[in-house]
Structure formats: structure tokens, C-alpha cells
Computed example of a mutant assay.
Amino acid sequence: MILTGLALGTVLGFALQRGRFCVTGAFRDVWLAKQTRWLTAFLVTIAVQAIGIFALDALGVIQLGADTFPWLGAIVGGLVFGFAIVYAGGCATGTYYRAGEGLIGSWIALAGYALAAAIMKHGPGAPLVESLRGVTAPVGTVHELLGVSPWALVALLVAGVGAAAWHHLRKDAARPKPVQLPARRTGIARILFERPWNAFATAVVIGVIGIAAFPLSYAAGRESGLGITTPSADIVAFLVTGDAELVDWGVMLVLGILLGSFIAAKGSGEFRIRVPDAQTVLRSTGGGLLMGVGAAIAGGCTIGNAMVGSASFTLQGWTAFAAMLLGTGIAVRVVFGRRGSRAAPAPTPVGV
């Protein structure tokens, strides 16, 4: 059953690469370009997933909830992770799919991320993680704290995100359409490999993948959804110890992301080995290591915490999400300075 993780990861990696779905870019655009289009797309993913997983919970297929809220770990880890992804050039999933495109800098960041996560989860950093995550509040979910049905929160989230997405879609429709080059492919091949994917369509696809992850993972004995940090740490631990029990559904998932992004990049002609300069190597190494530390302390990355945790309305998920966004803003100030917006990179491009 763990091979379903490889299959789903391949689909996820394909969608991430073709949709250019980068959470780091979404967070960075908020601070540098004052744009929320890609952040809204990320929230669409959360909203879609929330509908599906609470339906699965109601049907008894999965069981959602959180007993406690490790608030200190969520805040500290989220800030560190958000700061790190600016230097690493991508969050966990962004680093995986760019590694599949052939970016050596992303491979370096990915190695640092997996190594640091393994150190913090399985090695000498574990006591620090346990200490920070041991500071908890007794209520673990937003709906439990407020004393309301989770469906009330799902409805509120869907309504708010739907309105924001509609606003951005109207702005997209008013923009001049880019010149279309003559099509090299036809039919489904053109949609999959040639045409740019729309941000919101990609968000819906990823949300559906997030829903499917729960029953598939449960069937393989892993009671969770999408997750990147622990599987990445487990890969390192397996390479060191040879313990085959570490190779579970989650490990297959992240390996599938690499495979899927490689297939997408090769099919679209975007795969190319790109060797970074010395400064990029240093930033990728440091950013990757910090990313692993932050994700371990926070209890997850932008997927496990900010997407899956937020979709299930855990206090950890939403707190880590906010801390990651703030940490990205702090890093933007450090990297680009107070006048950084004048020299800032262009916002994440718009898919059509």
C-alpha cells in the first residue's frame, strides 16, 4: 500500500511544477510586491482540503483533532522556517519540485533540510524540539476553543477565500492576454505540458490531492495526510541506519514529488541542470539547514502545518502559518532592506 504514496506524490510533484506553485513566492509577494494573489491561491488549497477532510471525518474514514496546542514550538519554529525559506529559495515542496527541474541549488537546500530535520527529530536536536514543543495549551483546535461546529469554520473559510479568489480572477480577466506562441502539441498533452497552469486551478488540484492523501495514508498504516518534514528526516535516518521500517507511505510521497516534477519539467522542456554560484551555494546550504530546524520545532512545514494543519483547524497549524508568514517578512527586510521593493524580483507570474 505504500506505493500509493509514490503515485500520489508523482501527481503532486507534477502539479507543483506545472503550476509553479511556490508558497515561498506567495509569502514573499505579500511583503515585496504587496500582492496577495498567490497567497489567496494557497488559501484556496486549504479551503478545498478542509471541505474534503471534514467530510471524511464525518464519514468515519479518518479522525481529525488535536489534544493539545504546542504554542511555543509553533511560534518559534514557524518564525525560523519562514525566515529560512527566503534564503533557501523555496519552502519544502518548492525545493523538492525545483530539484526535480535540475536546480543544483535546490538539491543543496534539500539535503540541508533533510539532514537538519533528521538531527532535530532523531539525533542530538531532539531534546530541544521536545522541550519547545512540550510547552502546550490544553485545547488543540479552533472549533474546540470557540465551542462551535467545525463546519461553521469551513463555511466561513470557503466564503472568505471564495470572495478573495473571485476578486483576483476578475483582475486577471481584465489584464491584457499574453501573445500565444504556435502550439507544439494538441489535446491533453498541450494542457499538461505546454499551456501555463492557472494559479487557482492548480490550487484546487493540490487541495484534492491533499484530500486523497488521508485515506491512502491511513490504508498504509500512517494516520496523517500530506507531510514533508518527517519523511525527509526518515530518508536520512534510513540511509544511516538501514532500518527499512522508516520507509513508509510518507517517504514514498516525497520521492514521488521528485519524480513527478522531473516528468513535468522534461515534458514541458523546462528541465535543465543549473549550477549555482558560490553565494547561492552558501545561502542554499544555510537556508536548507535552518528550514529543517524550523520545521522540526514547528511540527511541520508549509504543507504539514500551514496547509494540512490549517485545513483541519488546529491551533498549531494556523499559528505556525502566521509565524511562517511573519518570518518571511523579517527575512525580506534583512535580504532586501527597507528600500528592497525597488529592487525586488517580479511577483510570481500569472498562469493563463
Rank of each mutant, 00 (worst) to 15 (best):
M1I: 11
T4C: 07
G5I: 06
L12Y: 05
G13K: 02
A15G: 06
A15Y: 01
R20G: 05
F21Q: 01
V23I: 14
A26Q: 02
R28V: 07
D29C: 06
V30C: 10
V30P: 00
Q35Y: 09
R37T: 01
A41W: 06
L43D: 04
T45P: 03
T45L: 11
I46P: 01
Q49C: 03
A50S: 15
I62C: 09
A66Y: 10
A66M: 14
T68W: 11
P70C: 12
W71D: 07
L72G: 11
G73R: 09
F83L: 14
A84D: 10
V86K: 07
A88T: 08
A88R: 04
G90E: 05
A92N: 04
G94H: 06
A99P: 04
G105Q: 07
S106R: 06
I108W: 13
A109W: 12
L110A: 15
H122W: 14
P124G: 12
G125M: 13
G125K: 11
A126N: 08
A126E: 09
V129S: 13
E130F: 15
S131N: 12
R133D: 13
G134D: 09
T136S: 13
A137Q: 15
G140S: 04
G140W: 02
T141H: 08
E144R: 15
E144Y: 08
E144G: 12
W151D: 01
A152I: 15
L157A: 07
V158N: 03
A165P: 00
W166K: 10
L169W: 11
A174M: 07
R175N: 03
P176S: 05
A183R: 09
R185V: 06
I188H: 10
R195M: 00
T202E: 02
I209T: 04
I211D: 00
I211F: 01
A212Y: 00
A212C: 07
P215V: 01
S217C: 06
Y218W: 04
L226R: 00
T230D: 10
S232F: 10
A233W: 10
D234N: 12
F238H: 08
G242T: 04
G242Y: 03
A244I: 10
E245Y: 11
V247M: 07
V247C: 03
V251K: 05
M252H: 05
G256Y: 00
G260T: 02
K266S: 05
K266G: 06
D277K: 13
Q279I: 09
V281H: 08
V281F: 09
G286P: 03
G299L: 04
S310Y: 09
S310P: 02
S312F: 01
T314C: 08
L315G: 12
Q316L: 13
Q316Y: 08
G317E: 02
W318F: 11
F321C: 07
A322K: 06
A331W: 06
R333L: 15
V334P: 03
V335N: 08
V335K: 15
G337I: 10
R338G: 15
S341T: 13
S341F: 13
A344L: 00
